[in-house]
Amino acid sequence: MQSEQGDKPQAATLSLPARITVAVTVGVVAVGALFHLGMVFLHVAPSNTLSKQHATAVSDYVYPEFEQNWKLFAPDPLQQNIHVQARAEVRKAGGGTETTGWVDLTATDVADMRHNPVPSHSQQNELRRAWGYYSDTHNDQNQSTGSGGSDLSSSYLQNIVAGRLGPRLNGGTVVRIQARAATTSVARPTWSGESVDTTTQYRELPWWTVTTAPAGQENAS
């Protein structure tokens, strides 16, 4: 299965059909490689006349397996810490309900990552990207921006929050949950002469009713 080349005669010494086969291979590979690189280039380049003209062709080709985004910390790095926090409404044994205090879920992840040379994706990416997905697909009033995925992103965030809070809290059964994003700007460098308001801003999401069936068990579609 592996290359095991002995004394390989050059292509020039081959018979005509063999040479044609090699020539066709060279042509197909060259065209294929250049086509692929051209498509990827148009995908990663800033939107331009050519990529706008062929937008559907490019995205049909690149998605889903050749998708890429190399705007790592660009054009500007994130300049605020966003913590996802959550609270729950629990039903007590006596029948009364009670609202818990806010739990900082991101802080738990951050504590797990501290002094850990190999943080897990479940700590570093799960909540961070779930919030990113939610805020990309919702406006500040928590309405869908209509670009698709808003129901997926809110279900996802809901599943994470429900999973982390668990079914029971403060001696009661969780019936509803609510999440909020606590955004704190990173203080500007002292030498920059700039200053920024570093008080934490909160964005509350609507209450979600917790379904009794654990998420992920249903088998739709």
Binding site: P46, P75, D76, L78, T106, Q124
Partner: peptide, 26 residues
């Protein structure tokens, strides 16, 4: 692309970009 997009960022221009990830909890 990583470099060209950075050039467009004000924090990469004023030379403080590195400072911010070093203050992000994640």
């Amino acid at each position: 692309t990583a470099g060209w997009y950075k050039i467009q960022g004000s924090r990469w221009e004023d030379g403080t970009a590195l400072y911010y990830p070093l203050h992000l909890d994640d």
